[in-house]
Design a binder for these strands. Sequence first.
DNA 1: CTTCTACGGTATGAAAAAATACCAATGAAG
DNA 2: CTTCATTGGTATTTTTTCATACCGTAGAAG
Lengths: 240, 240
Amino acid sequence: MKETQLGSLLRPVRAGNAFEETVERLLQAIKLGVVPHGERLPSERDLAVHLGISRVTLREAIRSLQEAGYLDVRRGRYGGAFVVYLPPEPGHGDLAEAVNQMGAGDLADALTFRMAVECGAAQILATVTLDSAQRAMLLRRLAEVNAAAPADYRRLDTAFHLSIAELTGSPLLAAACADARLRVTDLLNAIPVLGPNIAHAATQHQAIVSAILAGDPDGAARAVAEHLEGTAALLRGFLA
Amino acid sequence: MKETQLGSLLRPVRAGNAFEETVERLLQAIKLGVVPHGERLPSERDLAVHLGISRVTLREAIRSLQEAGYLDVRRGRYGGAFVVYLPPEPGHGDLAEAVNQMGAGDLADALTFRMAVECGAAQILATVTLDSAQRAMLLRRLAEVNAAAPADYRRLDTAFHLSIAELTGSPLLAAACADARLRVTDLLNAIPVLGPNIAHAATQHQAIVSAILAGDPDGAARAVAEHLEGTAALLRGFLA
DNA sequence: CTTCTACGGTATGAAAAAATACCAATGAAG
DNA sequence: CTTCATTGGTATTTTTTCATACCGTAGAAG
């Protein structure tokens, strides 16, 4: 077997230290709106268990996010770590900085990865027969993103995309899609949300859902590919 | 956003301790034949850097694999950790034990995940124009697996599948496919490699390559889906 | 106003992991 | 045979992470 494949298997077992990874994870959960402004994070004890780290390490991460102004930590019963973060005005993030931070090669990698896992997820979801609750969930998420206020658009768009992966019932796949999304969050936040783009995206979202509900794997994968290619092209356009 | 999505983002940042993860990773590299019988692992110093761990931790992992009989460690210049592992006779592994070790739910998760990422990789590879070297690589891997001796079949099959992901140029995607494969290795090693199955697989491998080279994303994804569904069905059959 | 209790805050010791430096062996090259 | 570079082997110290126990606070419930 070639050395190239050795790299895929003998890659790092550890992305970084526990503290830094935890900060990054929590920050992304905040920026993605998984825990919206004003809401509370799970308690330190619960969160430490979910993240698989000690409470001490988690507290260090929370403290740094508090000092950075992302969290308001209150003690006592009914206290906790409350999110203080309003999504940036679309288009006002620093795109160049975000790209420089990750590198052009990493960007291509992230976009390719996202394309693969999201297409795969949609394709799979189209092959299984969904029960009524699952269909309702998918349609609700679609309706929410279509009715979203500009400030909530990214958050609900994220929720829609993640729902597709989660409905497959595969935690591994859901995690992969979440990871893929995280890698392009800063970039997406930095580009404007324009009316025509939203309308276009709405059409594509509808096409994705239709193909999934119709049990058309090829169509679902193609619809997701077209949709993601659109945002990828938008990103590349703003860079050139 | 729903709590279900919270789980995808606030999942563990650490899969386990560094030692155990390293043992697992090295063991899979050996079982997959990435480093074949008689070959040498990279030096401890190099390997520690690649795996992102300290040499101390790596040595503990190597030591346990040595004690388990997978490695022959020799010191001095031109020494190193040499692989001592001959692939098991197909069909003689303990399938029930392998399944019990991971659980039925985990198995379904792993199969779904693999389906998604490999379909996605093939789909993407079919959309890019490959240069002659890349086409040659793909065809060579196809020829190798078709000409494989039974003892080498799994190894070359793995190499073929991983090549598709690697040719996309996305390390993230390659890592995801490698990870997906790792999760079903023990299971695949436990089922027999029968003549009809090999012939069938060869046809499907050919179809995958043809679709990729023809620039047919839908066809490539469909071909991979059919192929993987075959092995998945085989696995389920042996379980029932 | 008192109580109860779920939360964050703090302290301490153990264990895991890392960083660094140095020792020992091997075998090809000269 | 001698040299010497490359490899595994060992020891030491520091940093990170974890486990555990306990303290302080706030706010709803009575």
